[in-house]
Design a protein around this nucleic acid. Structure first.
Lengths: 150, 150
DNA sequence: TATTGTTATACTCTATAACTATA
DNA sequence: TATAGTTATAGAGTATAACAATA
């Protein structure tokens, strides 16, 4: 709200969050798109396999909070780029065990390094205290399921 | 980062911002979609006309930071719903002067009230200090044009 | 030639339903 | 019948180029 109690869009939290999210997403997606032709879901799936090791698509869905259709398409794309391997579990042939290839691990390393640098670059303008408050607020908001009150 | 210096996605600012932005956007877009069948750009265009009064599509582009194609389509949709009127400026027939109709102003009032309540509901879990830091950080991030450093 | 606004097109992201194969 | 994963489709968001009308 401004001095007169009028409502300005900049003060509306969903708008402010969206502007900040778009700004930061763009800078990073440019990196993985230009270098590896990857989409956001591909980066997230690659990240989970690189960070936590071999797992099924189902496990990625659960851990990453992604729907199975998104994961399915991302896995196919990463496979097409030679970044992951899929092998059917002989004990239950519905499951596919997914793992990064050597190239996939290289891309993972590069992207995690880039992400660290990117995060540091964005955070560098803030004090330690501001960073902590920001991250805490964001994680609490992400766990809400807010509705417009009556 | 966690204890071991490993990178977790929750700590990556673009990811944390995106999760928070999606959470808050969803709760509010549900409201204007269910009540008025509106899309996000329509809400933003309606907001600017309601808040700042009659103006041309071009002025909305400049003020709202929206591309003219988005504004053009949102204006057509709001017009179709009877929420705004368009009249050609007789002095320069390329310009259309846009203004909310009575119904449009009613919808604007309802949405601004809803937005205030929604914002207050989200903010209610935070201290005054946290709110101030959060909003300040978000507006500073939104003005950045960050890139991955080499 | 430049500006206002529209139309066409394409790509990304999200969401859901229907399907195949396996258990 | 339930689960893992795929395919199809549609809606929403974003981006750009080409166009018509006017100046």
């Amino acid at each position: 709200m401004n001095d007169k109690g009028e409502f300005d869009l900049e003060d509306f939290l969903p708008y402010a969050l969206n502007q900040a999210a778009e700004t930061t997403s763009r800078g990073f997606s440019t990196y993985y798109r230009d270098r590896y032709g990857m989409l956001r879901t591909e980066w997230r799936v690659l990240f989970h396999l690189g960070r936590y090791g071999e797992m099924t698509a189902r496990a990625i869905c659960d851990r990453a909070g992604l729907h199975k259709t998104k994961v399915s398409r991302a896995v196919a794309a990463l496979d097409g780029k030679g970044l992951l391997s899929r092998r059917t579990d002989p004990d239950d042939r519905r499951h596919e065990r997914l793992a990064l290839t050597g190239r996939g691990q290289g891309v993972f390393s590069d992207l995690v390094d880039a992400a660290r640098r990117y995060d540091a670059a964005i955070s560098s303008g803030f004090t330690r205290h501001e960073r902590e408050v920001l991250r805490d607020c964001l994680s609490r908001i992400a766990r809400m399921r807010p509705r417009v009150p009556r």
